[in-house]
Design a protein around this nucleic acid. Sequence first.
DNA 1: GCGACAG
DNA 2: ATCTTGTCGC
Length: 218
Amino acid sequence: MRFRIPHRWDLTPKEAAALQQKLRDEVIAEDRLGEVRLVAGLDAGFDDKNTARAAVAVLSFPELELVEQAIARVPVTFPYVPGLLSFRELPALIAALEKLQHLPDLLLDDGQGIAHPRRFGIASHLGVITGIPTIGVAKTRLIGEHGPVPKRRGAWTSLMDGDETIGAVLRTRSGVKPLYISIGHKVSLDTAIRCVMACCTRYRLPETTRWAHRLASG
DNA sequence: GCGACAG
DNA sequence: ATCTTGTCGC
């Protein structure tokens, strides 16, 4: 699989933010996904300060058994700037995706989707570039406020930015810190919540993410 | 000017 | 992300 990147990656932080503002309109915030048979988890780690190691794990759905995996090492130039994460990690994640033999029906990406200052977090950016339905699964908050989340598994509360719902704070496991879920691309928030829960068995993180993290680390 | 701040 | 041991709780 080969993806068409509609822009350059070597931008200044200011140019990158302007690009997000321009691409935000490409995001489709409703369900445009068919039957999900393959779900992929993506994650990035670093071999050293200038080398990203991205990993993709493809699992069967809803069985959640490993079908394929891929890793890619790519030099990174962009620094970590809150709100501009995609310009640092996407090149590597896309390189890993391009190595796959099976094209996933759904992508779960570490980080935010539209729960972002310009509604264009890394998961949305990845979705717009690949055209594949994507969900943002973050371990911590970037922006937005929310009330308490019931402690029972499956409970969730809306993540709000003013009067706008930008995501959901989801308890994937009873009594454990919740996850920040948001629309990436071509998936509604309700569907995103259901898919994430369907990928969580006995741990806080989805099996897809756990596999990808394992591959991207050691 | 003072915090907040995905990974 | 990454640096890092033991420790509290189910």
